[in-house]
Design a protein around this nucleic acid. Sequence first.
DNA 1: AAGCAACTGAGACTCAGTCTCAGAATGCGC
DNA 2: GCGCATTCTGAGACTGAGTCTCAGTTGCTT
Lengths: 166, 166
Amino acid sequence: MAHVEREVGRFQDFLQQQGLKLTSERVALVREIFSTHYHFEADELLFKMKEKAVKISRATVYRTLELLVKSGMVRRVHLGEDHYHYEHVTGNSHHDHLICTTCGGVIEFHDEVLEQRQLEICEKKKFTPTFHNLQILGVCDACRRNGQRPDSPDRVRMIGQTRLRK
Amino acid sequence: MAHVEREVGRFQDFLQQQGLKLTSERVALVREIFSTHYHFEADELLFKMKEKAVKISRATVYRTLELLVKSGMVRRVHLGEDHYHYEHVTGNSHHDHLICTTCGGVIEFHDEVLEQRQLEICEKKKFTPTFHNLQILGVCDACRRNGQRPDSPDRVRMIGQTRLRK
DNA sequence: AAGCAACTGAGACTCAGTCTCAGAATGCGC
DNA sequence: GCGCATTCTGAGACTGAGTCTCAGTTGCTT
């Protein structure tokens, strides 16, 4: 919990610095975000707040997420679905994702070799990178053991669209 | 043009094999897709057809794209925007993307070191990969020379949302 | 404590993508 | 070449994530 309050403080600093205000809605959202979910969706957050009988409108959820992204405390990521997900930014630790197309689970990893090689590629192409985004889709250990075949004939559709939906 | 007709043939083979029909709309779309655009959006395609006075409904565009994806001739990709893009699948050549957040341009690349390393990571995590997806966002050579600063204070918002829009 | 800028909620709006269904076209069997 | 089941198409309603607007509210500076 102390940890969560530290995040609230960080956010307050950011807001103050921008001439913005720390409202009760913003505090509630930051607490919710940093007390549990590592990866989450905007609608999920909206739902959780409603569950807790804290009334916060959709517009406010999106507005606050935008501020959190600007402040660098939260990052917006694509996880293979057709809408955004968000995740905490802990320190500077950039990482990428393995996404199980069977259970929807997400495994994070960070690999220096990969990072370095990407920089080399950018240099070769005279490209100045600011950010990157790698998702590897497939089947996790648990799902594979449960007899899920990773390579069904329909795999293209699975990955592209429906599998992760709903 | 002969090249385009070969793609039409490939699509016809696929349709036949699935007990589906080769309609004039499908032919027109395949021709349009494979005669120019390497990367394209569904709406862009819809617009181009309207421009050429070929009347094809949105539903048909999306349905045909779905079939092309299933046939393996086209791939659905995320290019950092909040909706899908599509690209040709030429042979088996998988590749990833450098995306310029200033001009919206896309540079493709393929790198075996990167591919290999990803497989190693998956192995270590007991993850069975089927597909992956890497975008590196940044500023291309031309835009950098034009004095665009890659690291503006607003960079997070730029990358995450607005920059590529519209 | 006042005042004003910033904030909020409700709901209208947008935009990509999907679905439905009645009418149209394809192509297989003859 | 023709009939006809099957598949396709277009129009437009629908969905769901996300954005915008505006009138009323709240935080914070003085």
